[in-house]
Amino acid sequence: MTFFRMEKINKFFPMGEEQAHILKDIDLTLEEGDYLSILGPSGSGKTTLMNIIGCLDVASSGRYILNDREIEDLTEAELAHIRSREIGFVFQDSQLLPRLTAQQNVELPLIYAGTSPAERRRRAQAMLERVELSDRMNHFPNQLSGGQQQRVAIARALVGGPSLLLADEPTGALDQKTGRQVMKLFGELNGEGRTVIMITHDTNIARNARRIVHIIDGELTEGGDAADV
């Protein structure tokens, strides 16, 4: 089943007098359960594309159909609803709130979704167990290593039970060993049936995905199966 379809997506950002053309006629289709890697150098428009996929931003032109909904037609409240129920974000830096514990950070999306406190706690703890941090639930971010912080961020992305996990350079700030751990986790999550999109500038990391697309200067080219790269 098709998870989403993008047709001729363009994105412009105002730059002084001019308009910077950041995404150029992007066509991309993703099947449910897929594991896609978007590979490209810094500044090529990866994060911009991810923001559009994740309904944080809208395209300047083109069509984006997510689970049979035309995203352009949705209100801000409906977009927020999609973000909290259907998409889990892992941002470029893990982006934990420093004054909340690991568990409270993971509970955050559920607070805005209106989940009851008991249910929130239960699901956050289950998710932290899933990323093997059950002994770190009450630690604050500055008491955790980079890899642990990233796993908390992944638990937070997953706690709402999204069908899509969207990760922007999830290993960018990690050493190779912890990076591999995170990749292993992504592989497992995809194995459990979740659709995963991972953005990276690192070919070795990209190879973990089942499918790779290249983005250079805002233009997307299909890269075929991971094995070919």
Partner: peptide, 16 residues
């Protein structure tokens, strides 16, 4: 600002 952006990205509505 960053915290607000993060919360919105995680599904917080403007009124929240």
């Amino acid at each position: 600002t960053a915290e607000i952006g993060l919360k919105k990205a995680l599904g917080a509505l403007p009124w929240q």
